[in-house]
Amino acid sequence: MEFKTFVFYVVAAILVFAALRTITARNPVHAALFLVLAFFSTAAIWMLLQAEFLAIILIMVYVGAVMVLFLFVVMMLDIDIARLRHRFWSYLPLGAMIGLLMVAEMALVLSGKYFSAAALPGQTMPEGYSNTKELGRLLYTEFVFPFELASVILLVGVIAAVMLTLRQRKDTKYQNPSEQLAVKRNDRVRLVKMATEKDLPAESEVKEGGQ
């Protein structure tokens, strides 16, 4: 057995284990962490396929950003596991049906002629082949319009998310740092001129005032 094949089987075994634990772990935080492990193993498999750009981006985007926010949400939510298991059996047929549907779809795609081993390009790449460079070249030449379209859609999504959460509340107090920085001494401090000395009042008055 070639060493690469051995690595593939090890990583694939970890991936399958992590994926199974993602759906069977009782604690939602543990499940999310197993999902992170699954992403890692997937990235390792992509790396074996010499798709280093996609592998690193998978780690950067999904592990580094998406899953952290996901963990955030899962940790903050008050998840009652008993309530989640409530009516498990009545939902099972529907869930199983959707699962089977997905398996059938994947089987159809993967057994089709476009994804069979014969249809895929060979593993041997020319000397100096850079997956990152090739991907960049294709994205910015042949597929530049779909690429730009996708980025515009993403931008719309970003702005929409900001707008949804942006609500003007009357009761929040907030500070404007630029205003704070632009403040001048004269706006805040008023110097009062006073005489440094003051004549003492007559002795009889002090006695009365002092009581």
Binding site: L33, I56, I57, I59, M60, G64, V68, L71
Partner: peptide, 25 residues
Amino acid sequence: DIDAGVLFLLAVTSIGVYGIIISGW
């Protein structure tokens, strides 16, 4: 000496945050 060095760095350093979030939880 890999060609995707900067990407590798960004990916690896983004994992460090898990240490904090996991230990905090």
